[in-house]
């Protein structure tokens, strides 16, 4: 094997990013579809049944026509897996941003990214710190994207609970969903980060949304059942399923801290992973 051509790797990374974005905004992952079909079959509220019917038909329609499921194609959140032989340098970040620009034109994605204060739209879904890129070491060179819509992101919350308030974690989650009502487009998925630091808990909450949602631990199931007792239902119209799933990631934390972050995700739990060809 000769010296890898760096520019070819960067081009391939951009291509993989664009391909992952296209896949994510058009086709839902199998675990998410399974969770939706399961919840639809179990639903007893006739209004909610109608909402599920529309959701399932919308998923089919988007796949058939090759168009985005939802007009809010989100902001690009990217998880890069870097193998030992690929040096982590800033040009990898530039290549991912190029992939985002490519997808914005090709798919097309709605240009959602603006300057935080002036609100000026870059029209290519990139900007300062955007795409949000997280790097993890691994065996394969791959790009995972999690396009994040605003409706659900805007009702996400974090709490610095007291160490004596472990029992209040459930209350905080349920309160988050109560305050959100129909705004995050339920049935939602909750990514929860418990422990770590203030920022770390939020990062864990988002990473939790990468986990398969059609399996839950006993703790996750308990939280999910508590949320569903609210009866908010699909789109806030009432029903048995407010949350499809709750996924939790943990980190150790300071003996005086208990950070809890909840990242709310709409029913369109979009994510896709594409391996970088080289």
């Amino acid at each position: 094997m000769g010296t890898p051509d760096r520019s070819a790797i960067l081009r391939a990374l951009g291509r993989a990013t664009a391909d992952a974005l296209r896949e994510a905004v058009i086709r839902l992952p199998p675990d998410v579809k399974r969770a939706l079909v399961c919840a639809a079959a179990a639903e007893t509220n006739p209004v909610a049944q109608g909402e599920f019917h529309n959701i399932v038909r919308n998923i089919e329609q988007a796949e058939t026509l090759g168009v985005p499921l939802c007009q809010d194609t989100g902001v690009p959140v990217v998880y890069l897996t870097i193998p030992p032989d690929v040096p982590l340098t800033t040009d990898l970040y530039d290549a991912v941003a190029e992939g985002v620009r490519l997808a914005t034109k090709e798919v097309p994605l709605r240009p959602n990214v603006v300057d935080a204060l002036t609100r000026h739209n870059s029209n290519d879904n990139t900007g300062a710190g955007m795409p949000a890129i997280h790097v993890m070491p691994g065996r394969k060179f791959s790009v995972t994207v999690l396009p994040k819509g605003a409706g659900a992101e805007n009702v996400s919350r974090i709490a610095m609970l007291l160490p004596s308030q472990v029992e209040q974690i459930e209350r905080f989650l349920v309160e988050t969903v109560l305050l959100a009502e129909g705004r995050p487009c339920p049935p939602i998925v909750l990514g929860v980060g418990i422990g770590g630091t203030f920022d770390g808990a939020a990062a864990l909450a988002k990473e939790a949304l990468l986990l398969p949602i059609d399996e839950m631990t006993a703790f996750e199931q308990q939280l999910c059942d508590a949320v569903n007792r609210l009866g908010i239902g699909p789109m806030g119209l009432g029903g048995d399923t407010t949350a499809l799933s709750v996924k939790v990631k943990f980190a150790a934390c300071h003996t005086a801290s208990l950070p809890v972050a909840v990242n709310v995700q709409c029913w369109a739990c979009r994510r896709a992973t594409v391996e970088v060809e080289r």
């Binding site: 529309n54 959701i55 988007a62 499921l69 809010d72 699909p234």
Partner: peptide, 13 residues
């Protein structure tokens, strides 16, 4: 009248 959020492709059809 409420239409299902996120169902943009279905609406367009």
């Amino acid at each position: 009248l409420a239409f299902t959020g996120g169902c943009a492709a279905l609406a367009a059809s």
